[in-house]
């Protein structure tokens, strides 16, 4: 009888998934990069300098991996968590004390903090190597938007535990929107926006109200931030990440001296 791995690799099922032999010779190491969906983001070959860890710091890749960790742990957390005043905090207690895999929330929170840091480090490296210079200007701009989305993801997630730390951090942060020029009811210029002598910008119609869904951080805010955190921002980030990676390839791959 042939060895087990030969039986598996020779089976119709295996061959239907992987249409070529194992990547152990040069030809198949090229083919694997071209035929595998998850690997096709990469080029087939690359300058040695471009994969040197002391040059790239791997921080972009680490950020993407942390995003995947956040997605997986986030989905699992959503099984346990209900974004209502009645349940949000109690579900946190249950996650800590009752649920198996009791470090789910820990992984999610620490990976979120780490992701903010790795995004910064990635941008730091890109700046220090001048990699934003032509032809990569546009990808840097997308990167800045992704930085913003990362911060917003973290910010919206900060509220969900619904403890004192959460509600007051979001209160302090969202109070800034109250002072938005023209669009905040305590911002410069908003007093000028009147219609027949009636203020258009009040604490029930300004930028902060739009953000919180209420005059203060409350149940509406919890729901709004939950939807932003779990659906809207991750989708936007995923789309921009796809463009970001695609543009890395289209703009000539990882930067290096000409």
């Amino acid at each position: 009888m042939p060895p087990l791995d030969e039986i598996i690799r020779g089976s119709q099922i295996w061959k239907s998934v992987f249409r070529h032999p194992a990547p152990i010779d040069r030809r198949n190491r090229v083919v694997v990069m071209l035929t595998n969906f998850f690997l096709h983001l990469h080029p087939v070959s690359i300058k040695k300098q471009g994969i040197s860890l002391s040059y790239t710091w791997c921080m972009g890749g680490v950020t993407f991996f942390l995003f995947l960790v956040e997605t997986v742990t986030g989905v699992l957390l959503m099984f346990y968590y209900r974004p209502t005043l009645e349940w949000a905090y109690n579900d946190m207690l249950a996650l800590r004390d009752v649920a198996s895999l009791g470090i789910l929330r820990e992984i999610h929170r620490w990976a979120a903090h780490a992701m903010v840091i790795t995004v910064w480090l990635h941008m730091y490296r890109v700046f220090l190597t001048g990699s934003y210079k032509p032809p990569r200007e546009f990808n840097w701009v997308i990167g800045v938007i992704l930085l913003l989305l990362t911060l917003l993801l973290s910010f919206t997630g900060y509220l969900l535990p619904w403890d004192q730390l959460a509600i007051w951090a979001i209160t302090v942060g969202s109070n800034m929107a109250r002072a938005h020029p023209f669009l905040g009811h305590e911002g410069p210029g908003s007093a000028l926006l009147t219609l027949d002598g009636i203020d258009m910008i009040t604490n029930a119609s300004d930028a902060r109200f739009g953000l919180l869904g209420a005059r203060f951080v409350g149940e509406e805010t919890l729901n709004r931030f939950y939807v932003l955190h779990c659906v809207a921002i991750p989708l936007a980030a995923a789309l921009l990440m796809a463009i970001h990676f695609w543009r890395v390839r289209k703009d000539g791959g990882i930067s290096g001296p000409l």
Partner: peptide
């Protein structure tokens, strides 16, 4: 991440209260 998550518990303070303002109140 696993070691970090096991060694350090994620913070969970008292339930949210709109009347008890912590001092200092800090943003993330």
């Amino acid at each position: 991440l696993f070691v970090w998550a096991i060694l350090l518990q994620a913070p969970l303070e008292e339930p949210a209260s709109t009347v008890k303002t912590p001092n200092p109140s800090k943003a993330p």
